[in-house]
Write a protein that binds this DNA or RNA. Structure first.
Lengths: 259, 259
DNA sequence: TCTGTTATCCATAGATCGATGGAACATGAG
DNA sequence: CTCATGTTCCATCGATCTATGGATAACAGA
């Protein structure tokens, strides 16, 4: 069992799929994959993000790499991992959807942390597009800054949850705030909304997160943030829009999941 | 660890998702799930279909049930399993897609069995819809009869691969034949097409299979087959169309995958 | 009630996996 | 060349998983 490339040579299709399945048996690996769908990171950053020893994280990443779900890039002495493609993110999304729909416990956990009540009133992607065009909302990306840099909604400003309270002043109090994060299972945006509401602001979450936005074929801007004073620069000024690989029909490519 | 419902009580979101992941670590479980996305079956039928001892198959099904991916129905002395919902099939589809895209070996296996060369010329769903309307194609469902009964493309006739040669006479030689099966990783349709072409007929595969057809929001007919003489009864006469849960935009809901 | 059929449960033995600390390797800076 | 840093490889122990045969439970029919 050395040459893993051709080892198991007589392995059927399902054995191959099981190699992918092996990645998502372990909670930490799912967490890592989820992170990697947001942005590429070094091994050390990943290990720290999910609370794992370096060697353990590396081992997990090896498993993921053998299944071809992640790829690496070397920069000097450090190695950056990234998701190996669009399909990987779609797979993770499908897994999350399934979890949301089938596992009552997921729902309970989310509710227990307080994301239950207000999550009912979310902004759809279509609605956000429309209101962003007319300029009467502020869109904030509450994920860590690296993930914002790796890709964000055009016109959104980066306001990581941890800095939210300190930088509240930057927000235009007259406008409604729409917060988004990693996806339906991520609690960053719901927490941000709770914080903002406690301050008397009007705030809602976007349905789902950036991966779903991207998968819907909507434009994504990469690169650092701009001064962040103007709340709504006209959309479409992205530094690098996604190539039009996905059909840009957008608006609910996936059937809805919300309860 | 008895009350699995609330055991692991203090488990995070990713632990919950890993419960789903656990299902797809094992090749046979993926195979079972794939089968169950086509039609419900008894334990015995499943065990036989995938070549497993009864007790082993039952154990696997238990795992899948604990993860809430399958549900059961009792009829007399036998228990029927079925996929627990639309999202399950979507998940399996995403896994297959990912396998197709990432695992070079999958491609090699498919090619090795001879599905490589002709698979390039497939019929899109949109094209099939159009040509079925004008009535110049025969659509054949080459899956086992149970799966046809559980759901098939309106107007398609059931012609399981194993009976194809014997029932060749039923086909209208003047029309092109479009064969479909379980999905991109299923070899039934490609083999059928190869057989038909060897007989001099014009034949092509449909892209993907029935689950993808259903997921695209297109109508699905359930129930036994009709006399199967008339090659193209007008579509839309389905005995029970799928409820309009999914958006019926159809035509390429997912971004394409074909190489 | 007794019997045959179908499915689940159980105990066991063999295989695989995960976490961990320390060694080994590659790279860049003195 | 020699160090320091970041990452991967390795050996090990403990935990978990799988297959299997046989026991048990649910059900139908006489």
């Amino acid at each position: 069992m050395e040459h893993e490339t051709q080892a198991d040579g007589r392995a059927g299709l399902y054995e191959q799929l099981a190699r992918i399945g092996k990645v998502v048996v372990h909670p930490k690996r799912i967490e890592l994959l989820d992170l990697l769908c947001q942005a590429e990171r070094s091994v050390e950053a990943l290990a720290q993000a999910v609370g794992l020893k370096l060697s353990t994280a590396s081992a997990h990443l090896q498993v993921m790499r053998q299944a071809r779900l992640v790829e690496t890039r070397r920069e000097g002495t450090r190695v950056y991992y990234r998701a190996a493609g669009e399909e990987v993110c779609r797979f993770v999304t499908a897994l999350s959807d399934l979890g949301w729909a089938r596992l009552a416990e997921v729902d309970q956990i989310l509710r227990a942390i307080g994301a239950g009540s207000e999550s009912a009133e979310r902004v759809t992607r279509a609605e956000l597009l429309e209101r962003a065009r007319s300029g009467d909302v502020v869109v904030i990306d509450v994920r860590p800054i690296e993930e914002y840099t790796a890709g964000h909604i055009p016109g959104a400003i980066s306001l990581p949850l941890e800095h939210l309270e300190a930088r509240l002043g930057e927000l235009d109090l007259g406008l409604e705030v729409v917060a988004y994060c990693r996806g339906p299972l991520c609690l960053l945006a719901p927490e941000a909304v709770a914080t903002l509401r406690a301050r008397g602001l009007r705030a809602r979450c976007l349905e789902d997160g950036l991966p779903e936005w991207r998968q819907a074929g909507l434009p994504v801007t990469t690169g650092a943030e701009r001064p962040a004073a103007a709340p709504s620069p006209p959309a479409g000024r992205s530094r690098r829009d996604t190539p039009a690989t996905a059909p840009a029909d957008g608006h609910e490519a996936r059937p809805g999941r919300r309860r």
